[in-house]
Design a protein around this nucleic acid. Structure first.
Lengths: 235, 235
DNA sequence: CGGGGCCTTGAACGTCGTCAAGCGATGTGG
DNA sequence: CCACATCGCTTGACGACGTTCAAGGCCCCG
């Protein structure tokens, strides 16, 4: 049941049992990666996609000036590169933030799935478009929100997404990334991210310490961040 | 031939004549919008997609604090909301930047296309993922590039995209938006965007005046902007 | 025990935002 | 036909937010 978490996060359109079985059967093999390992390198032809089973993954681009911009963070149940099926290669790289397990779906198998069922196609397509919606929300974050709000918004997003797959404990969850990663994701420097995290903690909103997030006041945090989860299309 | 410009911008995968004809036949009717008119409002159920035939369109979100963040700019040959087919509604709004003509594709017709041909499906899917790749490049812009570089990068992107559909004249093209729009797209204030545009002009790179862009030195501009067109997947 | 990540804090600097004012072009109503 | 409002562009002065540079601490691991 490698597709369990994926189907848990993507409930529409509803798959027939046959389609669900076909999706499950399209999985080829599982792979492990150690933390920091590059899983997909930009501009390299790809012949398969990877569904994340455990661990955290980043998509990112490094700029000529030496800055890293994280474009997305993936959690178990996410396809980290399903978009490689129509695109054939990626314009960014993908790397493991933690030790990771994934399962591969060869492009020809994906093709067969799209030939088989328009509903299944819609589901796969939809999942890549939800990633795109998250991309756009991040544009809003880095383009139009202040530093503290940006960080708060990211923590809100991770909380809601992790909650859906049962990876939270009340208002607490593991988010095993460094402050440098948070800074790279929000377009800040590590120094400033650190200061803003302290501010969030002192405001009694949320605490991030050594990969552990504790939300003190969820309604206040949501309000502070201007977080509206509709962009996650959870239904 | 309402799909001419679309097929011009999306050459892979290659469609059979039959598939191309089916796509063309799926078009329902043309619609005109005046400048500034909202075409799609966020969070409203949709039953059709719109392919842009002429004019410029923006996707955007307005923040509670009153800032507008432009998420994408569309030109003729772009589907402005094909992602509404799998998503059923959008998390952002779409508006005309100029007077605009579009042609609609009802969702049931799109569904029929996906049932008909896996290649056609792949092409449509791919076009939405190229939009997503542009979204990600914009994350890099607002997150990791300075103000002048951001503007330069946007002008590079528009030049390359417009050139492909024959809407440039040498190193000059119409880009009928205001400096306010440029600011909203790059996460800057109009005042600062104005200053940076002056700087680009005085550096002899590019000029933006009243909706007209003149590139003085394309290699130098590309270099200054760190522009690598591969994220546009033009093949 | 030494080295390297990662986190933390301070001080100085710079990019970009805010506020304010003036200009020209356009358009509208008296 | 002119008065006046509106919108977009431009520039200056000032201030704030975020970066850079620097230093020290902690912890883990070799």
């Amino acid at each position: 049941m490698v597709t369990r978490q994926f189907l848990q996060t993507h409930r529409t359109p509803v798959l027939s049992d046959d389609d669900a079985a076909a999706l499950e059967a399209a999985a080829a093999r599982t792979i492990d990666y150690p933390a920091k390992r590059v899983i997909v390198r930009e501009n390299v032809p790809l012949t398969q996609c990877t569904l994340l089973l455990s661990g955290f993954v980043e998509r990112f681009k490094d700029t000529p000036e030496g800055r890293r911009q994280i474009l997305a963070i993936h959690i178990p149940g996410d396809f980290v590169d399903l978009h490689s099926y129509p695109l054939k290669h990626l314009e960014h790289s993908v790397a493991a933030l933690t030790p990771v397990t994934g399962v591969t779906f060869p492009h020809p198998e994906v093709r067969k799935l799209t030939e088989r069922s328009a509903t299944l196609t819609e589901l796969l397509w939809r999942s890549t478009l939800i990633d795109a919606a998250i991309n756009r929300e991040w544009i809003v974050s880095v383009g139009a929100r202040g530093a503290a709000v940006r960080l708060a918004h990211l923590l809100c997003e991770m909380f809601v997404r992790l909650e859906r797959i049962g990876m939270t404990r009340g208002y607490e969850f593991d988010f095993p990334v460094t402050q440098i990663d948070l800074a790279d994701a929000t377009g800040l420097t590590a120094v400033h991210a650190n200061r803003m995290l302290r501010q969030l903690r002192e405001q009694g909103l949320v605490e991030f310490r050594q990969g552990l997030v504790r939300i003190f006041d969820w309604p206040a945090l949501k309000d502070f961040a201007g977080f509206d989860p509709r962009y996650l299309f959870m239904d």
